[in-house]
Each structure stands twice: as C-alpha cells, then as structure tokens.
C-alpha cells in the first residue's frame, strides 16, 4: 500500500516552542479513497493539512506525493504536483465575480500558453472550464455576482470550485460544511460525494453524519497523534474514539 500511496507522510512532527501540535504522524493515503479525519479541537487536524500542502514546515518527518519527497517544497510547487486544498475560512477573490474567480483559477494550468498581450477574457478554453465548474458546483445563477455578496453556502461552493479547478489528484478539504445551513447541507454533501470520485480526498469535518456517510476510512486524531483508524462503522464502535471524541453516549 505504501509504494502505491497518492500521499504519504512519515513521522511528521510540528512543534511550536514546548507545544507539540503534530506528534510523529505517519500514514499512507491510497489513491482514489476518501479519508475522514476527525478529532476534538486542538487535535492537530488543520496543522496536518498545513504541513501536507507546504504552508508549514515540519520540525521533523517527511511528506511524499506519490514517490516524490516534497518535504522541502512550498505550496505552489506542491499544488502544481496535483495537491489541491479548500480552506476552513472561505478564500475567494472578493472584488471579482464568481465567474471571474473560476476563470482566474482555470488560468493556472494553461498560464504558460497564454500570451501576455491578449486579454484574459479572450481565451475560450478558460471561459469554458469556468462555466463547466459553475455547473458542477451549482452556481450558474450566481455567475455575475461579486464573490463577496454570496451567501455562506454559495461561498463554500465557490471555495470548493476554486480548489477543483486544477483537477487535483489529491484534494484536502478543511471543514467544507462549516457554517452551511441545514437547507444546503444535503446539497453540499452530495456535491462533495460527486467531486470526490476518482480522487484521494482528505476531509476534515466536525459534521459526523457527513463524515460517516462520505468517508471510506476514518482517521481519529488526538493531541497531534493518530489514535485510531478504520472504516466508519468500526470507528463508531471503537471505545477509544467514543471516549476521546464522540462521547461515551455516542
């Protein structure tokens, strides 16, 4: 499994002074599977994600994308190797419309082929890809709306669309359902299921029913360590998990 891993981390450790945010985390994420990563606040989930994308340098340990050691590479280089990410706090381009947001993201993969002297509006390839993504994330009717005027749920959909635009082989989703209202919850969960097909997905999410529905494997973290892993049903029954995270009456 290790040799075929889409993403592999070995003994990852992150220390801030005397505080250890991530403590020797090792795991090999297989291609095409959806992993739910759960744990109480402060368990090290977002730190793990930051280390995996290259935003935080680990104090020790290594990260491999397929078989390439990317520990020394920064965010853009890892992104170009197929590592996509959506953020816990929506990070869209406020001041641009939804369509312009997606068109800009679509430029990433064809940028070197786009001549400098032509307007970004005149490239049909990026416009078509942006329109296709509007349909995928269900934002066709909001195409001309400034991104900062979107509802929270639609903002989360745009966030996901931006992450998907580069068609990443490995997608890291940091609480994509955070703040999404009950009305939009099922729609967004369905969307996550649809866009996850064929990719390796690491999903950090506090909404347990969504994690249990979407994830094929659940990793449980606590105090920066991986304390348990297995299929969702097994994790529900695991007494360590119940005690650490779900509560004894879960």
């Amino acid at each position: 499994m290790t040799a075929d891993a889409a993403l592999r981390c070995q003994a990852l450790t992150v220390r801030y002074g005397r505080f250890t945010a991530l403590d020797g985390f090792s795991y090999a994420f297989a291609p095409g599977r959806l992993y739910g990563i759960i744990g109480p606040n402060g368990a090290g989930k977002t730190t793990l994600m930051n280390v995996l994308v290259g935003g935080v340098r680990p104090s020790a340990g290594s990260v491999h994308i397929r078989e390439t050691d990317v520990t020394g590479l920064r965010v853009p280089a890892r992104a170009r190797m197929g590592l996509g990410r959506s953020f816990q706090i929506t990070r869209t381009f406020a001041g641009m419309t939804v369509f312009e947001n997606l068109r800009l993201a679509a430029q990433a993969s064809v940028f070197r082929r786009q001549p400098l002297w032509r307007s970004a509006r005149t490239f049909p390839e990026t416009a078509e890809r942006a329109r296709a993504m509007l349909a995928t994330v269900g934002l066709e009717r909001e195409a001309d709306r400034p991104a900062e005027q979107l509802s929270h749920g639609d903002g989360r959909a745009l966030e996901l669309g931006l992450a998907l635009m580069a068609d990443p082989a490995v997608l890291l989703l940091d609480e994509p359902l955070a703040g999404v209202g009950h009305g939009a919850l099922d729609r967004t969960t369905d969307l996550l299921a649809r866009v996850s097909a064929g990719r390796t997905v690491l999903l950090i999410e506090h909404n347990m029913s969504a994690v249990m529905r979407l994830a094929e494997t659940v990793l449980v973290m606590m105090d920066g360590k991986l304390i348990a892993q297995g299929d969702p049903a097994a994790m529900r029954r695991d007494p360590r998990v119940r005690e650490a995270y779900l509560g004894s009456d879960a």
Partner: peptide
Amino acid sequence: VRIEQLGWR
C-alpha cells in the same frame, strides 16, 4: 494564499 494554492509563486 489562494493564488499560491493555485500553483503560482
């Protein structure tokens, strides 16, 4: 942050 995540330095 988003621009870096899209692969641009």
